[in-house]
Design a protein around this nucleic acid. Sequence first.
RNA 1: GCGGAUAUGGCGGAAUUGGCAGACGCGCUGGAUUUAGGUUCCAGUGGGCAACCGUGCAGGUUCAAAUCCUGUUAUCCGCACCA
Length: 805
Amino acid sequence: MEAYNHRAVEKKWQEYWDEHKTFHTENDFTKPKYYALVEFPYPSGQGLHVGHPRPYTALDIVARKRRLQGYNVLYPMGWDAFGLPTENYAIANHIHPKQVTENNVRRFKGQLKALGYSFDWDREVNTTDPNYYHWTQWIFLKLFNKGLAYKAEMPINWCTSCKVGLANEEVVNGVCERCGAPVIRKAQSQWMLKITDYADKLLEGLDDVDYIERVKVSQRNWIGKSKGAEVDFRLTGKEDKLRVYTTRPDTLFGATYMVMSPEHPYIEKYKDCIENYDELMAYREKASQKSDFERTELAKEKTGVAIRGLTATNPVNNKEIPIWISDYVLMSYGTGAIMAVPAHDERDWEFAKKFDLPIIEVVAGSDVPVTEKVYTDVETGTLVNSDFLNGLSVADAKVKITEFLTEKGIGNAKTNFKLRDWVFSRQRYWGEPIPIIHCDKCGFVPLKEEDLPLVLPEVESYMPTDTGESPLAAMTDWVNVKCPCCNGDAKRETDTMPQWAGSSWYFLRYTDPDNEKELASKEALKYWMPVDWYNGGMEHTTLHLLYSRFWHRFLYDEGVVPCPEPYAKRTSHGMILGSNGEKMSKSRGNVVNPDDIVLEYGADTLRTYEMFIGAFDLSASWSDEGVRGCRRFLERVWKLQDILTDGDAYSPDMNTKMHQTIKKVDNDYESLKYNTAIAALMSLLNDFTKKGAINHAEYKTFLILLNPTAPHITEELWQLCGFGGTITDQKWCEYDEEATKEDTVEIGVQVSGKLRGTIMIGVNEDKDSVIGKAKELETVKAVLSDKTIVKEIYVPGRIVNIVAK
RNA sequence: GCGGAUAUGGCGGAAUUGGCAGACGCGCUGGAUUUAGGUUCCAGUGGGCAACCGUGCAGGUUCAAAUCCUGUUAUCCGCACCA
């Protein structure tokens, strides 16, 4: 027997699979389909990270298993290649981003091939390919034509270092997610997508999909649906009403003041009657200059200014109350103004305490006076000081007051969402051009479908500008065009789309990647969609995952795709940390390069190790010793050849264990428990080694079970042993439920809950016989000698417990 | 502050969901092979001399708890003035 040479074996089979197109997926719509998907990577300059193989291997296992089970499997890969790092690298090294992308993709692809993934490389997609972003632009036009894409002048998160507007999701603790520089607010005209129109649909859609619970919870929280009411307060002596949103309309009688956001338009409108207008302006100025970070920092200490000369009247009791401004009220949520009920809202209470405003109890139930401690409980309280609501529970009061408001025309029930519209433009070069033309006469004019794709022009300088304009703006030849409507002078939109655009629909393109007439054919979409299993990072839960659900749901409403939800099942993997338990980074010096591991130990070892490292959804620390352990396992699998004997059926002494292992591995591969699947195979291997023999039938089964995890070595062994054909042509192993059951089992014997020994019993042995055996144990006799038996418990096949006093 | 998760030997982690805690791997100890180191193979390995004690900590339910309940601590990850 030759030694296990992973380099030769892996090279041989990778070439074989390539040549024979083993994993090519046909659009054969007669077979049952399975669509397994992993998030396509951003091809960064650093190359593949050891974190990448974890999810890729997990779903490669699923894909390979499904093929053995007879499914037509789609397991594709591509490149999410637009984005800032590439552009920055291009600027720094004077190479065109397109070239940078090509280089990086080549490297990534080589690395992925070296890991032996069963991707169908004929379906590779690249978001920067005009044939691809043709359809990204096409979807944008659809959104635009439905009024879901609009341009708005609004304060955006502006990264002072990247010089680019960021989505809320890209701002982390007030600094840029990418570069860590402070983020300030800056007014800029931006393309926005109305994801808020889909808030309810995105929320409801979660009920029908199989996502891991924490993903659902995060998305629900992010969408942030809340139910309440809008109420109009009269501005004393004015025509206008000041409208507020509240989730506690039941506490309306307890409103003792109001607070408007510093940006509220009424401040301008009633400038003339406001006595301290300058003071308000000064406060607003100060608030707007705060970065998000400072705003968060200072969150604990409430600030604000009372408006002099403008008051409001509570519509239910006609009490006149003051109006304040404070930055704890956000213009972007609700109506930009609130009624403050300090007795029953924590923030209002704090504010009232600080500025010495009255606190009136309207919900009784606290054992401490509301002037001492805020009372926010909604379960047990009873309404007081509230006229016709007195005596009601909070829930009943909410209903009654809402009816009252509606009847009197001073308010209505209202649902709000935390979800904000999606800032969709970037002042950058390396992104999809937005296919819109600005015409002074006609406004925003969309390109015609037949003029797509709008190709990103070659540009000399892609340096970002301080003015906030895209580098494309300097390309006058490209920018100046004739209006498609009136043929007058017009200009192209020079902002580009964010990186999230291309990844919001890429899974559709895989079903029909070369289609030039549609984003994918109806037939292909109908057959392949939805994705059966999608695995990706938790960090994308409120970004990519939500955005792509939004686009998909929109395309469903437009009749483009056949199902409302794109992903039937979503799982998430944990991070791979450095051996010191910290996140891998150059500065920490704990980075492991997958190329080195593949070279030294082989792809099969790396794959096996990453699956064995621990629970799939938890983060795990790298361990070189652990890698060696997995390599040893594969070496021992290799050596089983030495003890191979004839035999087309499992040998009697191994039969039960074989069926048990098939069942275990089968179930574990399905439920993200790759670590215990491998442990089961290791345990089986130990049995064969101990026994000193494995027959053909047993080895075949062993190799098929291991194949999805370690595809190269199992192919090679299959061939070396002359089992016929290749292992990828075989059928997945079946197990017989009956055969997994033991005839005799060893069970524990407890006396009063303490383990005293074990006995061998037949699975069908009756209670008396089992208890009898248990009592014969010397250790049991010894403990029972001076006690009387109170109770005898036998759980069939599990345990005996003799309770004695 | 709110939400979510996690806590088990020297280490990574198992435990059929209430039924012999520590599967499997790493590491370690001893032995065999080897000129030696490495590799490989065999045996052992939660703590304690023992009775016993052991799943972050304190209670509780149960014949029986890592698992269920109550309280509590620590760590990690989201979100963060959303009215």
